[in-house]
Design a protein around this nucleic acid. Structure first.
Length: 270
DNA sequence: AAATTCTCCTGAAGGC
DNA sequence: TGCCTTCAGGAGAATT
């Protein structure tokens, strides 16, 4: 599933191909994604150049001189650069066509989104209330500690809340908590500043490492889908229920916390 | 206001 | 082999 590292890798992969390129046409095969793709998109974009390819949280931001195309990959979406004229396959819902290439969105589960906004993207309702980027200097242990004071949610739910910090998806939340020795169910308002500093550092570290990996395995994503599980070799607890903890050998536990699977070692995390 | 539950969707995995 | 059930998951919306 596309987590922040994959979105960032996608951004890096597509940017050189489409920046300063003029849109020749838009093909919509299935407009029913998370929200319907506006039917006017072809007339809105045709003839306009992509001026920038940015990212905020897991949203990709294709900048134009008259607005921004916001793309979210949901949990099964992928974007690929293809030569023009390649026949679409199942679940290829959306194409942005340029003179020589095509940017194609495939999303089997259709949890993704393609939205147009004329306003500044950071003012869009989906973006304006987001927490800081995890790799920015604004994201610190002190930030977490301050926001946690009046809440008692499990710390795992807390760090996965996009209003607190973006990009800590289920995989990386589990990994960062393990690295930090913090039990995922620990009430967030009972965690000391020093432990939050450790946690913030580990969230940054695991995301940086994954971006590095994603850059390797998704490098030629034009050829096909980025293989899922590219980061699998480095996962310590995610998806490892019943397997021995890499630290102590106790069996990794799996529980539902806030409708999500939590994986942790009850011996190493408290 | 914060916390919890619901919702969208399909493919993979498990059970029989 | 095949059908049916269950589950996973990002994150906004609805509900408590």
């Amino acid at each position: 599933m596309p987590e922040l590292p994959e979105v960032e890798t996608t951004r890096n992969g597509i940017a050189p191909h489409i920046t300063d390129q003029k849109v020749c046409g838009v093909t919509i095969r299935q407009r029913q994604l998370r929200w319907p793709i506006t039917a006017r998109l072809n007339s809105i974009l045709t003839g306009h150049k992509v001026t920038s390819v940015g990212r905020r949280a897991k949203y990709l931001l294709l900048g134009f001189d008259h607005g921004t195309l916001i793309i979210h990959l949901g949990m099964s979406g992928s974007l690929r650069i293809l030569p023009r004229g390649i026949e679409a396959e199942k679940h290829d819902h959306f194409d942005l066509e340029f003179s020589r290439i095509c940017l194609r969105l495939r999303d089997p589960r259709r949890f993704g989104a393609v939205l147009w906004t004329r306003a500044e993207p950071e003012k869009h309702r989906l973006l304006k209330n987001l927490g800081p980027e995890p790799l920015s200097p604004e994201f610190t242990g002190a930030h977490l500690h301050q926001l946690a004071q009046n809440r008692r949610a499990p710390v795992k739910s807390f760090i996965m809340d996009g209003h607190v910090v973006v990009g800590a998806g289920n995989i990386y939340a589990n990994e960062a908590l393990f690295m930090s020795g913090i039990h995922p169910r620990h009430p967030c308002n009972q965690i000391a500043l020093a432990r939050f500093e450790t946690l913030a550092g580990n969230i940054k570290q695991v995301l940086k490492a994954a971006i590095k990996q994603g850059g390797t395995t998704l490098r030629d994503f034009q050829q096909g889908d980025g293989q899922p599980g590219y980061f699998a070799q480095q996962l310590q607890v995610y998806g490892k229920a019943g397997e021995p903890c890499p630290n102590c050998g106790h069996a990794i536990k799996q529980e539902r916390i806030g409708q999500r699977s939590a994986f942790y070692c009850s011996h190493c995390q408290e």
